[in-house]
Design a protein around this nucleic acid. Structure first.
Lengths: 226, 226
DNA sequence: GCGGACAGATTATGATCAAATTCTTTGCGC
DNA sequence: GCGCAAAGAATTTGATCATAATCTGTCCGC
């Protein structure tokens, strides 16, 4: 799965692929709210695309868990329950530390430098309070690592998980909670030292921290809506 | 995801859903060979369906990893590499024992009886050398358990994994290797005794056994093709 | 309340266009 | 004259669109 989204190559993509990526990025980077309704005709107009490509993109995202079909055959952005969030946390903890370890073995010094660069971009995004760039940077940081693991199946499972909690991140960011310790920096340090154990712990801590923030915010909005 | 495929309800399904399930079952139960080409017009004719439903079913299966898109935008059934098989085995071992444990807690005595019944159906299918019924029974046994875990996200990840190694099962069966000890019976016994540890071990052993058979066969056909 | 018509949205079909593969033919060199 | 290879035509396949048919939910009138 291509995550680098080079704009030069993006022009030559087939319509359904371009539509898929635009919708996916909206889901991934907090541009869609949990519970939001998604209509084919709505997307058709807002994205200036035909009906068939939109249909396909929606089906694909639905299969990946990013969107949800109701019995009425309506489509919406899933609203996570605490129990589902636990499932995601469990699966992420099972997959992502492994991916990171597999990646570390294959990593060159220059790859680690690139990761550090991404991480500092994230810091500037945080300072500028640019939510979209923060989320995009965070995604790039994690998947730049995971892609080096050369484990396409585990990677696609992980991508599916990120798609599922993506919409919930928006709310987290809006609350501007405490950022906490920088687990990315710990991870980079562990990779520099080829310390598998430390890397695993850094990734686990990052996941736990992120999921906890979602969990807290989810509880907040749930009570607010009730 | 509906796996019980009740034929009464199946008539009322929308075309694209029915097409999806037929294709999915073909993938899952060894009716498609790894490497086989899948053309949209070919499916249109063999399944007597329209073009749009077939397109959607293929897109959906592609998103789930059951089918593979090439750069030429052609579609085929993936041929697993040993490394990918390791990924699947790792992910299965991470997810399925957990699902089984979650399911066991919610299980009633009658549910366990139903599982035992499925398992004996499997035995008769083996005696009759009915490959399709054996594979379908095996699938039903595992997912009857996993569905009781009430963990939809972990369930869909697991389903994606089964879709990926489904086509490779055909070859395994053709070779009619030794069946080995019946891990299903061990699992049922563990559930009867509410023994989480034993259940986990039975599931792990069943997965390891199954994956090993695929691995051995995969190595065989690889050398045969070389 | 109950029922039916209406509006909005989705599903499904078939046609049309574009891309890729295959096959054939043509031309060159030996 | 023979064989290889490149060019091009024909076929196959995929992508997109416009449209018709179907379904769902709602709103009005009784």
């Amino acid at each position: 799965m291509q995550t680098s989204d080079n704009p030069v190559l993006l022009a030559k993509l087939p319509e359904h692929e371009a539509t898929y990526r635009r919708l996916r990025d909206m889901v991934l980077f907090g541009n869609m709210a949990p519970g939001q309704k998604v209509t084919i005709q709505g997307i058709t107009q807002s994205l200036q695309a035909g009906m068939t490509p939109v249909r396909e993109a929606i089906r694909r995202l639905t299969a990946e868990g990013a969107l949800e079909l109701h019995e009425n055959r309506r489509v919406s952005v899933p609203r996570l329950t605490p129990s589902q969030l636990d499932e995601i946390a469990f699966a992420r903890l099972a997959l992502e530390p492994r991916l990171a370890q597999m990646a570390m073995i294959r990593m060159r010094s220059e790859d680690i430098d690139a990761l550090a660069a991404i991480d500092s971009e994230i810091d500037t995004a945080i300072e500028a309070e640019d939510v979209h760039r923060y989320l995009a940077g965070n995604f790039r940081f994690h998947f730049a690592i995971y892609e080096m693991a050369a484990a396409p199946i585990l990677l696609s499972l992980t991508q599916s998980l990120w798609l599922r909690f993506g919409p919930s991140l928006r709310v987290v960011i809006e609350s501007e909670a405490s950022i906490g310790p920088d687990r990315h920096r710990d991870a980079v340090a562990a990779m520099r030292g080829q310390d598998a154990r430390a890397l695993s712990e850094a990734v686990e801590a990052d996941i736990a921290q992120g999921m906890d923030r979602v969990r807290a915010e989810l509880a907040g909005t749930a009570s607010a809506r009730a």
